[in-house]
Design a protein around this nucleic acid. Sequence first.
DNA 1: CTCTACTATTCCTAACCGGAAGACTTCTTC
DNA 2: GAAGAAGTCTTCCGGTTAGGAATAGTAGAG
Lengths: 207, 207
Amino acid sequence: MRQERDLPTTSYAVLGLLTFGQELSGYELKQWADSTLRFYWTAPAMSQIYTELKRLAQRGLVLSREVGGGPGRTTTRYRVSAKGARELRRWLADSDPGFPLLKHPVALRLLLGHLLDPGQVRAMLEAYDQALAAQRRDLRAVLDGIDNDPAFEFPAHVARWGLSYYDSEEAALRQVLNALPEGSAAQSRAAQGTGQTGRSSGAGPTR
Amino acid sequence: MRQERDLPTTSYAVLGLLTFGQELSGYELKQWADSTLRFYWTAPAMSQIYTELKRLAQRGLVLSREVGGGPGRTTTRYRVSAKGARELRRWLADSDPGFPLLKHPVALRLLLGHLLDPGQVRAMLEAYDQALAAQRRDLRAVLDGIDNDPAFEFPAHVARWGLSYYDSEEAALRQVLNALPEGSAAQSRAAQGTGQTGRSSGAGPTR
DNA sequence: CTCTACTATTCCTAACCGGAAGACTTCTTC
DNA sequence: GAAGAAGTCTTCCGGTTAGGAATAGTAGAG
């Protein structure tokens, strides 16, 4: 009758979040996930978080407690149980992590670049560049908040890892932009461009 | 009565695959996806591929043809229709790509490093290093197969992008490994190790 | 001639997302 | 201090996606 199979990774992710702060509500958990987990996993949907919490509670991996804030208001807060901590350690030690999964909509579209004109491709890549910078800032802010705090040593490692990823994306993006034909104007006429271009052309985005 | 909403991205990915080769069966499509799409998107499950093909056919975005290989055996092959090509272009031009989604089980586990001992963390990261190298080889092989072929200019860009991603992962991994306390043996005693270590220590896994 | 591997497709279940909805609380703003 | 906006907290629903098992024919290996 024992449950042999592992829970989905997201369950353990939620459980893992509870090993930092203590006693979080589903709502707070979602905030946390949105601001940290999303950079290298998914930030699960609200509904998912609550579903996971219910399941974890059912298996005794988390303990819940009703906290009344007002008369008609009760918030349920969760914390890891001893059993939960054990199970989490077991999972970390035993299970095969598997390879990262990247869903990269920009790369996917670039793959189909032959269906677009060069200007459109360029525009798309530059928009991604913007989004990347914004995301990088967010993660930087997270890191600044936890850096040098020994309690968050590992989260800090992960955040730095993430930043280096964004840097590499940035660099790769530039590579592709440089390899692409000019802009919206010249496209089939390769002759002139290849000679002296290189870095200088792509450096100063017009907008 | 018109369908206004975009199909899911995976539909377009499948449709996009059909703009390279022509007339593929679901099975072949899966092979293709496994060897190329998986690097920056998901390789959809078999069932998913067939589901997508049915939907695409229903909307007239692909055309199908029954090919008999034997008496009790018919293979359905698909190709893009003119409408499909139009729709794909429209989608590429109109829709917002959104930001990449990374599901990184190793980073997730590293985040919870405080629950493991240093040796385990190290082992995990080194295993990932191996997997990364293997993956890199696979992608390298794909690129070698299409590089310099003008028909696959864009896939080649994407493949190079992917390679640079793996390189950056490799580098980030080393960073983390260097920042981590020694191995299974010495962990709190930082003094001696930092001097001459670097590459040599972790290089030869025992098994 | 049997076994294994490959081709080809379908079915079922669980995971997961996203939005809507409902209800209460605290903060603004006039 | 009343009205409304914004934030907290949770549930429900429908649709999409993932992944494995089941089925079945075909082709080659020994």
